[in-house]
Design a protein around this nucleic acid. Structure first.
Lengths: 138, 138
DNA sequence: GTCATAATGAGAATCATTGTCAATTGCGGT
DNA sequence: ACCGCAATTGACAATGATTCTCATTATGAC
């Protein structure tokens, strides 16, 4: 590895657009960010969104998680202090921010017990929200 | 939920072969298990391996984890029926079963507070294991 | 043994992601 | 402000993992 060859990213309008879109926060797939950008009037290409998100991920500016379906989700890296989780409806996709008490310290303790350092965790709660549950009553 | 519709899987030679192969232990991708089975003289199809592993995963007989590359790995579960999580090393990929006390009930409570039903959760703990941390000391 | 039907295998189809490559465009040097 | 060239882009082909399709096979109940 050579970090001496510090790659200098050019500030293209596409890169700026991605950074701007990321400000909306939340985890989204590359394809989802791409859709968002197109809706905002950009004509950015899908491959460029992938490349940009990957670059940002490697430089530590965005977090990425892999879902059970094998899809990679990206989100702008927030400050550790405001780390929180999401409760998402599997039917309509609505998501709410939630707080899981003690999770941070519990994960740190578990990691320590197994000799792991630099612990990170991804938690995704999903369910069916009340309105979707009501609609399912046929 | 309805366990009244308990589907009883047929014990085909393919299913038996997969169960037998799983006895070797360790996390492997579906394709890798398939290779293993073919090397053992089986002419089992790839789709069957996928189907069988998924069925076993749903019945709780095998664990599955998704790698950063989006590949799903399967391993026979030592403690079937008990939902648990994994602590995985980001460097070498080694995974261990862990238990996160109260997580089930905490997630159920949070879901209830938001009016969500049929709660499910995905928890992924990652870190750097002790041996990989030692190697990083150059 | 018979039979209904779940399970299988071969390959096509799908989905997310990556690679290709000619055209475009930051941006350092002038 | 202007040049020039390498980094970047976009359209689309290619890839790799997984799922689907459907004709054929074989399990398990009777």
């Amino acid at each position: 590895m050579n970090d001496a060859t510090a790659p200098r990213p050019r500030m293209t309008k596409q890169r700026a657009a991605v950074l701007d879109a990321l400000d909306q926060g939340g985890f989204r797939s590359a394809q989802s960010w791409h859709d968002l950008l197109r809706h905002d009037g950009s004509n950015i290409g899908l491959a460029t969104v992938y490349r940009t998100l990957q670059a940002l991920s490697e430089s530590g500016d965005v977090d990425s998680v892999v879902t059970e379906g094998g899809e990679t989700l990206y989100r702008r890296c927030e400050t550790p202090e405001v780390h929180h989780h999401h409760l998402r409806c599997r039917v309509c996709g609505a998501a709410e921010d939630i707080d899981i008490p003690d999770l941070e310290e519990v994960s740190a303790r578990i990691g320590a017990e197994h000799g792991f350092i630099e612990l990170e965790h991804v938690v995704e709660l999903t369910g069916v929200c009340s309105s979707c549950a009501a609609k399912a009553q046929h």
